[in-house]
């Protein structure tokens, strides 16, 4: 749906985006992750035709963003950062205005608005002036405006910024729901958001793309060595510890604590990334221990993000 090739954008001598290329396929929810000022908004503005790139090109649904900007804009629903809206309009009038501009046939306008009101939970505020709405409602009006023409592609710039935790969860659910049959690009600097809503993540720092992949994949790739926590019973603590330490795939064992019913907890660091859990399970079976708990500790996206954006090597 979206093909971005070697996109760069300079503002004077400042480089906002530097040689970014990526693809987004239909039905994918892509997360742009990066610290503030990394170039997320600039990339989105280029894709939506607000500003042109300095170099490079992009195609959205087969249309070039420069040569065929209007067709691109017709297929995109865009929520700019901070959800700028016409404050002195009533919600319903605003949506009607967008519906008109978006070429929705007059006969369908009412039905489309009604659907957006329902999907975005705007029932209580349709007749209110936007200026008086809370941040959460404004954000939802922004989403309604972006989706009213049922676009194939949604570009959402920090859709959950400035919302309270409940609103964040609601908006996330909404995006997940939409993401089932639409292509969505959303930006954020909140990490859990990405792992919860996005199928794939692009990490951008200082204008450059520094990593991409599924959230779990990224976490795994940057995990280093696997760490597993287990709880075992069936032998004395010392016996288990010695045997674990002697296993070829174990780098280090740390005994945590033992409970009264003979359950011993350990943290084990493996020598290589994958398969540690399985190997431990097999070892437990061979030694006829009972493996009561096994928990593979994945590196979180936070770790990945911090390592990458601070320039540390993974």
């Amino acid at each position: 749906m979206i093909e971005v090739r070697h996109l760069s954008k300079n503002f004077g001598s400042t480089v906002a985006v530097k040689d970014v290329s990526f693809d987004v396929s239909r039905g994918e929810v892509l997360g742009f992750l990066g610290p503030n000022g990394a170039g997320k908004s600039t990339t989105m503005r280029i894709l939506t035709g607000y500003i042109p790139p300095t170099e490079g090109t992009a195609r959205v649904a087969g249309h070039d963003i420069l040569e065929d900007s209007l067709s691109v804009r017709r297929r995109i629903g865009y929520l700019p950062e901070w959800a700028p809206l016409y404050g002195d309009m009533e919600v319903i009038d605003f949506l009607r205005f967008i519906a008109d501009i978006r070429d929705i046939p007059p006969g369908e306008t009412r039905e489309r608005i009604a659907r957006m009101v329902k999907v975005c939970g705007l029932e209580k505020v349709v007749g209110r002036v936007i200026h008086h709405l809370s941040r959460g409602y404004r954000q939802r009006v922004g989403l309604a405006q972006a989706m009213i023409h049922d676009p194939d592609i949604l570009i959402l710039d920090e859709p959950t910024s400035g919302l309270d935790p409940n609103q964040i969860i609601e908006i996330r659910e909404l995006i997940k729901e939409i993401g089932r049959d639409k292509t969505v690009i959303l930006s954020t600097h909140i990490l859990p958001e990405v792992s919860q809503t996005c199928g794939r993540v692009l990490i951008i720092n200082e204008g450059s793309l520094i990593a991409s992949g599924a959230p779990e994949e990224l976490a795994r790739r940057f995990e280093g060595r696997g760490i597993v926590q287990i709880a075992v019973r069936g032998a004395p603590r010392e016996t288990i510890e010695t045997k674990l330490a002697a296993a070829p795939f174990v780098d280090a064992v740390r005994s945590l604590h033992s409970t009264g019913d003979g359950l011993h907890h350990f943290t084990i660091q493996g020598t290589e990334t994958g398969g540690l859990g399985e190997k431990l399970f097999r070892l437990a079976v061979e030694s006829s221990w009972t493996l009561a708990e096994l928990h593979v500790e994945a590196a979180t996206l936070e770790d990945v993000f911090r390592r990458l954006t601070r320039g540390e090597n993974a």
Binding site: G49, Y50, P84, I101, Q145
Partner: peptide, 14 residues
């Protein structure tokens, strides 16, 4: 000032 120009100019209007 309000940034609505970004909303307006990314709508399919010339």
């Amino acid at each position: 000032k309000l940034g609505t120009i970004e909303l307006l100019m990314t709508l399919p209007v010339k």
